[in-house]
Write a protein that binds this DNA or RNA. Structure first.
Lengths: 193, 193
DNA sequence: GTTTTAGGTTGATGCAGGTTAAGAAATCCA
DNA sequence: TGGATTTCTTAACCTGCATCAACCTAAAAC
C-alpha cells in the first residue's frame, strides 16, 4: 500500500525503512465514497492527503453559487488547502471526492509531531511545497500567456484520461472558461483535426 | 542592517543570535544600480534575495518581445525564481532592478551549507515557501474571479506607494491588461468617485 | 531652449469568450 | 426499461479587453 507513497516522499531525500515506518504511523488510511466533502469554505483545513486511488477536486463557490475548480488531484498527487492548513486559518475552498477515493492523510498536530520525530521531513515537505509552487506558477503563467484552446490541449497532456472521468463542464471551470466555450473549442479542433 | 531581515526570518520560528549570525555569514550584501539584470531567461537562477531597499521586477518576454510582469518586489520582500533555483534548471524569466537596490542574497551552494549548519532553517524556508505559495494562489485566484478594475484596486492596497515608483504600463502588465485598458479603468474610476 | 523620447490618454474597431436559451444526448436510478 | 436528471451542443447576441492609431504632455537630451 505504501509503495508509491514512499517513492513520492523519497523523490529528493533518502529515508530509511525505519523513518518511513514512523511516517506511516502518523498517516491515516481512509476511503471515502463519491461526492464526500472533505473541506468546506469557512472551515480550517486539517489534512494533507496523498491520493492512493480516486479523484478529488478543490474549488471555490462565488456569490452566484457557481463553482470554479482550482485543482484536480488524482493517483500519486497531494491535496490540501496549503494556505489554510499551514496557517490554520479558515479556507475559502471546498474539497470534494469525485469518485470513491482512497487517501493517506495527516492532520496538523500529527504533522508537527512527525517533524519532531524525524526532522529530516522538514526538508521533504519543503521540497514538496516547492514542487507545488512550481506547478502553480506554471499554471498561473500559462493562464496569462496561452489562449483557452492551448490550455485545453495542455490539460489533456497533463491529465491523460481525466477527460473520461470528469464531466466536461468541470474541466471548463478548471480552464477558466464556460462549458459553452469549451464545447466550441472542441468543435473547432475536430474541424481542424 | 539585519534588523528587518532577522524579523522576517523569525516570523514563525525562533532563532538565537548565534544562529542568526551564521545565517548572516552565508548571505551576501549587494547593491545594484537601476536597470541591472539579475537573471536572464535561459540562465539558472542562483540567488534567493531579500530586499533591504529598492524595487525589482520579475518578468517574461514573449515571441513579440512584449514583457509580462509576474512579480514586483519591494522592501522586506523576497525575490528569486523559485522553480529555477530549487531545481537548478534554466529559468523562463528575467529579474531586473527598477531602482538602485540593496539586497541580502544567498546562492544555492551556500543555502545547502546553511541547512547543514542550522537544520532549523529547513523549517524557516519551508514556511517561507508556504507563504509564497499562499500569496501566489491568491493572485491566481483573483486573476480568475475578479475583473481588471477590482484587481487594480487590490493592487493599490497591496503595494501602497508603488504607483508613484513604477510606470503605469508596467502595472498594467502585472495586472494582465494593456496600458490603454488601465488608463480607461482609471478614467472611469475618477468619473465614478 | 528646442527637439527627442517615454509615458499616458482617447477613439474606432475587432474578437475571444460570456450570457441566454433551447434542444439533443447521455446517464442515473426506480 | 423508461422517465428524470444531468451533461453537452448549437445559435444569437453581448461585453470586456485587445489592437491600432492619433494625439498630448513632460521630462530628458542635445
Amino acid at each position: 500500500m505504501f509503495q508509491a507513497f514512499d517513492k513520492n516522499l523519497k523523490l529528493h531525500v533518502g529515508l530509511s525503512q525505519q523513518e518511513l515506518e514512523i511516517v506511516h504511523q502518523h498517516f491515516q488510511h481512509k476511503t471515502y465514497p463519491k461526492k464526500t466533502l472533505l473541506l468546506k469554505a469557512g472551515q480550517v483545513c486539517n489534512f494533507e492527503a496523498y491520493l492512493l486511488k480516486g479523484c478529488i477536486k478543490r474549488y471555490y463557490i462565488d456569490q452566484n453559487g457557481d463553482e470554479t475548480i482550482l485543482q484536480f488531484a488524482v493517483e500519486d498527487w497531494w491535496v490540501s488547502d496549503i494556505a489554510s492548513f499551514c496557517q490554520q486559518l479558515p479556507s475559502r475552498f471546498y474539497v470534494e471526492t469525485m469518485e470513491e477515493t482512497e487517501l493517506l492523510q495527516i492532520n496538523y498536530q500529527n504533522k508537527e509531531l512527525l517533524f519532531k520525530e524525524v526532522p529530516k521531513l522538514e526538508r521533504v515537505f519543503r521540497l514538496l511545497v516547492q514542487r507545488a509552487y512550481a506547478v502553480l506558477e506554471n499554471r498561473f503563467f500559462t493562464g496569462i500567456t496561452d489562449p483557452a484552446e492551448d490550455r485545453y490541449l495542455e490539460f489533456i497532456k497533463k491529465y491523460p484520461g481525466l477527460l473520461q472521468r470528469v464531466p466536461q463542464y468541470q474541466i471548463a471551470s478548471y480552464l477558466g472558461i464556460t462549458p459553452e466555450a469549451l464545447s466550441r473549442i472542441k468543435a473547432t479542433l475536430s474541424r481542424k483535426k
